[in-house]
């Protein structure tokens, strides 16, 4: 069972690299935000997988919950920031 979790974790990490492409090369700021959000949701799962591998799930669950919370707040704050400070409008006009 441990090896299954290990392979699942490695697979998840590979998928996160795929999402990283959108976060780095996304044409607009919001595309990067989507990439970051996708990486965050995968990390939450990965943290619990790591907990299962080390057989200390009770510790890693707390970290995963805190990570999910902060990920949500970060995405919300970033989207609000770009709404208000108009960082997006130049990009939108350029397209």
């Amino acid at each position: 069972m441990q090896s299954i979790f290990l392979y699942a974790g490695v697979f998840l990490a590979c998928i996160m690299v795929l999402s990283l492409y959108r976060a780095v090369f996304g044409p607009t700021v919001l595309d990067r935000l989507i990439g970051v959000n996708a990486i965050g949701s995968k990390t939450t799962t990965l943290l619990i997988l790591i907990g299962l591998i080390y057989e200390r799930v009770d510790m890693f669950v707390d970290i995963a919950l805190a990570y999910a919370t902060l990920n949500f707040i970060a995405v919300l704050a970033a989207s609000r920031y770009f709404q208000k400070k108009k960082g997006l409008y130049d990009e939108a006009e350029g397209r």
Partner: peptide, 10 residues
């Protein structure tokens, strides 16, 4: 995210 995009006029 989608709200920010619409308000930015994408």
């Amino acid at each position: 995210i989608v709200d920010a995009g619409v308000r930015a006029g994408l």
